[in-house]
């Protein structure tokens, strides 16, 4: 019996060794470690590199401007092969500190494992002269890019290029993923375009310029902002001026993102009897928005429902 026992031990040992080796090699070669600043880029990475280990520093319930350079984020960035962020100074209040503390040279330069989405597309609202009295504005343009289908496709292409640069062995797999994503994205885009035509001419009051690209894409006009100046919370005098504006009667809704405070919006809604629409800022901003596709579907749904209801009321 003893020799039999010896054999099993031997076999198991061999199995164990090969198992360890396999997982080691997977760690070393197969799994790219991706750190994203915002959930929309985690979702995009999920589409383009589903085998990667992906971590998002923020959720759709958090203001991406104001993030703590907290220990967990430093630890994650320390291990990252690729860092994907919106750029255009959106993360200027926390990303440099993470880079400094994480001591990971791989993700410090865009030549290597750092990727800024805004560098690969044209941003809206670039400003030549920025002054703090204007509020929290970025000279490099609006960084909330992810509601522009066209731009997201360009970003997907650039990100694939970056993945190929970092992980050349899997070039083919990345190209295939991009192809599949592009096909589905373009099909969805033309569907969204069609749906969005119902929204043309809609006027809203919104909080911050979080949905600048969405409104640009679906031809909604943001006639006023709940913030008196970008980054500053609504004040009572500012809300009073918004109420005056709302009473002109051409505005259909107040739009707020999932992380934004509802108090100002609710006050205005009550006084002006306008509906408040809470849109998910990004993937995970509500139950329905589980990936980039369902995020767009859901956001358009919410807008159309409210707009149609308003039109019915008007009749």
């Amino acid at each position: 019996m003893l020799w039999l026992w010896g054999l099993t031990v031997h076999i198991n040992f061999k199995l164990l060794i090969s198992g360890v080796l396999l997982s080691l090699s997977q760690q070393a070669f197969a799994q790219v470690n991706i750190f994203t600043c915002e959930p929309e880029y985690a979702a995009l990475a999920e589409e383009l590199a589903p085998d990667a280990r992906i971590y998002s520093a923020t959720t759709a319930m958090q203001d991406p401007h104001l993030v703590q350079a907290r220990p967990s984020l430093i630890a994650k960035m320390r291990q990252a092969d690729l860092v994907v962020c919106a750029g255009a100074e959106l993360e200027i209040g926390w990303l440099p500190m993470l880079q400094m503390k994480a001591a990971n040279a791989q993700v410090r330069s865009t030549d290597k494992g750092l990727f800024f989405a805004a560098e690969h597309v044209d941003t809206l609202d670039k400003m030549a002269n920025v002054d703090r009295s204007m509020g929290d504005v970025h000279s490099l343009g609006n960084p909330h890019l992810h509601f522009s289908p066209e731009r997201m496709l360009l970003i997907a292409k650039a990100l694939t290029k970056k993945l190929v640069q970092l992980d050349a062995e899997q070039t083919e797999a990345y190209q295939q993923r991009l192809q599949s994503f592009s096909k589905r994205w373009q099909a969805a885009s033309s569907k969204w375009q069609e749906v969005a035509s119902q929204l043309k001419g809609m006027k809203v009051i919104a909080y911050h310029s979080s949905f600048r690209y969405l409104f640009d894409f679906v031809s909604i006009e943001q006639v006023a902002d709940l913030e008196p100046k970008p980054g500053l919370p609504p004040t009572s005098t500012h809300l009073a001026s918004l109420l005056k504006r709302a009473k002109q009667g051409d505005i259909s809704a107040i739009v707020v993102a999932s992380y934004q405070d509802l108090r100002g919006a609710n006050w205005l809604a009550e006084k002006s009897s306008l509906p408040v629409i809470v849109l998910p800022l990004s993937v995970g901003g509500n139950e329905q928005s589980s990936d980039l596709f369902s995020l767009y579907d859901n956001v358009l749904d919410l807008l159309i429902q409210e707009y149609n209801a308003q039109k019915l009321l008007a009749l």
Partner: peptide, 25 residues
């Protein structure tokens, strides 16, 4: 992100400023 108030005078001022500055951007 810029403040989104579209008063016509402001807009045109902004457009011309933008044109003038575009070379500098």
């Amino acid at each position: 992100m810029k403040n989104m108030k579209f008063s016509p005078t402001r807009l045109s001022a902004k457009v011309s400023a933008a044109l003038a500055m575009s070379a500098l951007i």
